[in-house]
Nucleic acid binder design. Sequence first.
DNA 1: TATTGTTATACTCTATAACTATA
DNA 2: TATAGTTATAGAGTATAACAATA
Lengths: 165, 165
Amino acid sequence: MAAVTKRRQAAGAAIGRKLAPVLVSPTEMLELGPLNGHLGYFLRRLQIAVFKDFIRTLAPMKLRPAQYSVLVVVEANPGRSQAAIGQALNIERARLARLLHDLERRQWIERRASDGRSHSLFLTSEGERALVRIKGLAKRHEAQMAAFVEPRRRVLLIDLLKDFG
Amino acid sequence: MAAVTKRRQAAGAAIGRKLAPVLVSPTEMLELGPLNGHLGYFLRRLQIAVFKDFIRTLAPMKLRPAQYSVLVVVEANPGRSQAAIGQALNIERARLARLLHDLERRQWIERRASDGRSHSLFLTSEGERALVRIKGLAKRHEAQMAAFVEPRRRVLLIDLLKDFG
DNA sequence: TATTGTTATACTCTATAACTATA
DNA sequence: TATAGTTATAGAGTATAACAATA
């Protein structure tokens, strides 16, 4: 991403200052047309880039964003049901069931019968240990993102995004 | 989404002003823990909400965001190759091939052999006609998003997002 | 040899429906 | 009847690899 930004700045500068074309992208930039007015287009591109960095940084623990979100929300809300976790994270119960199966297989999460039909979710002690390392990597990822956006802008951006729900 | 925002504001107001709990969500809000510090988490939620609105609004034309982006970029850059379009939109050539197959089947896009190995892409006249209606719907979608975010904030947001590349 | 487009495979995520067992 | 969890299926999107035709 940084490379792209640099390239654009270089290309922009080249127009005014007649820099050598070395810094300009070799493949001509296409017109995006109406896409330039679409919030969703830029949102999507940035989201993909941020998730890619997350996945790359968390690769040592082989953890995807959705799995990470479930782990930290279970830690912050021990004993809640799958339905509650799913609702908080907008994860379909069908998908959450499979996702939890995987986390249970890795012995990071424990399901205790609470209701006969509902399960209470807890981290195992092994899960707690893993999560320490996981949160360290996640923090590194977030630092990479912060270094990338200017800090104040990042806070502003998170603030704007939170408003949407 | 609007409902969520309202609920939050109501919940926030209730703390200070002791409003009736009627406006507070019936299901207790879970802690998000470290998720609150993650740009990617909020980006993802907003992106999903925006795409959902896009898909719903464009449903009369049965057009997904990726298909829309290809149509408008082909219109803005007639005669370019699949490789060029794919690169501009970050769409894998394998995926773009299937996506174009579908648009060709609907007679909206035409591939003319240019090089022997590469194709030049153009809208058909039927594609042009369809795109008029499609852009109308897309504009409606964008207006819905704009009504939803406060206009200045939306411009600021798009501006921030563009910086990422 | 490298590039363009194509087909095929696998995995993630989303969206349903159908099913069980409980409340 | 409604809810909680499960399984299965289908589609979009992403990531590869392998391949043919061409430069």
